[in-house]
Amino acid sequence: MVNLKIDLVSDIACPWCAVGYARLERALASLPELKIELEWHAFELNPDKNAPQEPILPALSRKYGKSEAEMRQSQAYIMEVAAELGLNFSKMQQRFTCNTFDAHRLVKWAETQGQATAMKMALFNAYFGEAADVSRHQVLLDCVAKLGLDVTTAAQILASDAYSEQVQQDIARYQHAGISSVPAFIINNKYLISGAQEPQQLAAALRQIAAQVS
């Protein structure tokens, strides 16, 4: 048995981050010889909390310099990929841009409850499956309730600045490390796998890393 620590840098607003994690799960299912410790880390695609929210297609069109039709086609492809992995992206094209800082704070809290991954997946489902505004505290608390975690405690956290420093440290640390796109998988604080690689590619990379560290 080889132990690997995976630090997964991602944003709730990033569809490829959800896909990347789902593909990681499939890769790990083929690698029973590995024991994985996974830790989620924050990244913000929309760091301005005061930026006006706007429909996702024109926002992406402007960001990438492509037409809305091209972005709609690109998003439709991601929806197909997600569906094959069992992810709910049914309202992906109906969502609005939003800041995810408070959502990241909740993930940090959920980690203390052993529920970081479950919280992350609930947030992905809310944003891409329901087109919910994951910057709104009520939406975040709905995710907490669905996981059976303490809603009162979560509300107190959101009303305070709890876990803000940890999220800010994540963002600064990985920006300083040169991470400019997500998902980013950092293995044993040494090896970097960028992007939502196919399960077979991920498995091959992890197998190669495991051989080097064993």
Rank of each mutant, 00 (worst) to 15 (best):
M1D: 14
V2S: 13
N3W: 10
L8K: 01
S10E: 12
S10K: 06
G20H: 08
E25K: 15
L28K: 03
L28R: 03
P32T: 06
P32G: 12
E33Y: 08
L34M: 07
I36V: 15
E44Q: 13
N46E: 13
N50Y: 09
I56V: 15
S61D: 01
K63E: 07
Y64P: 03
G65M: 05
E68Q: 11
S74I: 04
S74W: 03
Q75D: 09
I78H: 02
E84P: 00
G86K: 04
G86D: 05
F89R: 09
M92H: 10
M92W: 00
T97Y: 00
C98G: 11
C98N: 12
W109V: 06
A110I: 05
E111K: 13
Q113I: 10
L123Q: 10
F124Y: 15
F124E: 10
Y127A: 10
Y127N: 11
Y127W: 09
S135K: 09
R136W: 04
V139N: 10
D142H: 11
D142P: 02
G148V: 15
I157E: 01
L158G: 04
L158A: 10
A159L: 06
S160I: 02
D161I: 00
A162E: 07
Q166H: 07
A172T: 14
Y174Q: 08
G178Y: 03
S180F: 12
P183Q: 10
P183F: 12
F185S: 04
N189T: 08
Y191V: 13
E198T: 10
Q201Y: 14
A204V: 03
A204Q: 15
A205C: 09
R207A: 11
R207H: 11
I209W: 01
A211I: 07
